[in-house]
């Protein structure tokens, strides 16, 4: 029940943030700098928020306050900078809080994680395309904020401390997986979809992203992280590098690419099960520098293909290495009484 509510809240938060930026903030004038500020607040701060969340461990309250903050950023008559501060900070806190609850309650499975992260893509697209719909989302977000607190306090103490034990030396897998997220963002930023011209085609592409993220968790549970990466990443690399000019290859490529997103996130969590907030925030924080780096690299044609393929190759190697190292670390842990793994 909490997972469904958090997923809906994730959609609402991302939709309201996009609606704020592309609605009232955009109407006020020059938005380029404000969009940079929003993305920096929403993404780069998540690792810091994650560190704090792992110490405070009041994820329900944090998510609830973040929902109200985002709704206020959209609905209140504030100056543009204040709107950006509200929705940027709210976005950061909600993602970490909701992601932490999902990871802690996942019972060692990646499926719930995919269900939680996927609706954000639809929220962003709808918020950008129809900013006025924010007036519908805002009261629902406040209602969700009211519901999350009692549901989150009902969670079992076991899930709130995570049942898994930390592996001995997770540093290299953590760094590799974080780099993989950033490098994948670089590769993704270089690619363009010339066929994405209207509202409907944007929505179709977003649906492919949503389906990929949702399916990714379940595929990971079924095949394991290594096989999931081997199945999805080469296909995504080829389809996106060479097929982005056509609709169907692009959709299939986006589906395959987004399959790996929950896999990477889940592996990060397995590397640091004692810090779910930091695991979630670290992956999100790596996205923004990667995206900026991709924007600063003006490549086209073969150079863009090579960069895309190289970024995906790095991603698959990072997942394979990390998966093996984490599994070895978990196997090396001594058996514990009352272990819940």
């Amino acid at each position: 029940m909490l997972l469904i509510l958090n997923s809906i809240a994730h959609f609402l938060v991302d939709a309201l943030c996009a609606a704020t930026v592309f609605g009232p903030v955009r109407a006020a004038g020059d938005t380029a700098l404000l969009i940079l500020l929003y993305n920096t607040l929403a993404f780069s701060t998540q690792c810091l928020v994650g560190l704090a969340a792992d110490r405070i461990r009041r994820h329900g309250w944090a998510a609830s306050c973040a929902l109200v903050l985002v709704a206020a950023g959209f609905a209140l008559p504030l100056p543009p900078v204040w709107r950006i501060l509200f929705v940027g900070c709210g976005n950061s806190v909600f993602h970490v809080a909701g992601g932490s609850m999902t990871l802690e309650d996942s019972g060692g499975r990646a499926g719930p994680l995919g269900v939680f992260v996927a609706p954000g893509a639809i929220g962003v697209t709808l918020g950008m395309l129809f900013p006025d719909w924010g007036w519908i989302y805002a009261p629902i977000a406040v209602l969700a904020a009211v519901l999350i607190v009692p549901l989150s306090t009902r969670r079992s103490p076991q899930s709130q401390t995570s049942g898994q034990r930390a592996i001995p030396s997770p540093m290299l897998p953590v760094i590799l997986l974080t780099l993989a997220v950033a490098v994948r963002a670089v590769g993704g930023s270089v690619v363009s979809f010339p066929w994405k011209t209207g509202v409907w085609l944007s929505l179709v592409l977003t649906l492919a992203v949503w389906a990929g993220k949702t399916a990714g968790g379940f595929v990971c549970d079924r095949l394991g992280p290594a096989k999931s990466a081997i199945v999805s990443i080469p296909a995504a690399a080829l389809l996106i590098a060479f097929g982005s000019a056509w609709i169907l290859p692009s959709l299939a490529g986006q589906f395959a690419l987004n399959l790996t997103m929950p896999v990477t996130l889940w592996l990060l969590y397995r590397a640091m099960p004692d810090a779910p907030g930091f695991a979630f925030g670290l992956a999100a924080s790596a996205l923004w520098p990667g995206t900026i780096a991709g924007m600063l690299i003006p490549l086209t044609g073969p150079a863009a293909w090579i960069l895309t393929l190289a970024s995906f190759l790095f991603g698959i190697l990072a997942i394979l290495y990390s998966s093996k190292t984490i599994q070895r670390g978990e196997d090396s842990l001594p058996p514990e009484k009352e272990s819940t793994i």
């Binding site: 690792c47 760094i175 004692d274 924080s285």
Partner: peptide, 29 residues
């Protein structure tokens, strides 16, 4: 500038996490 700030923030956060983890290796067990 934002790119550099983003990278520095991540590096600092990793450092803090590592220090906290070394101080309390049994946390979460």
């Amino acid at each position: 500038v934002i790119l550099c700030v983003g990278v520095v923030v991540i590096a600092l956060a990793l450092l803090v996490w590592l220090i906290v983890r070394r101080r309390n290796p049994k946390k979460g067990a």
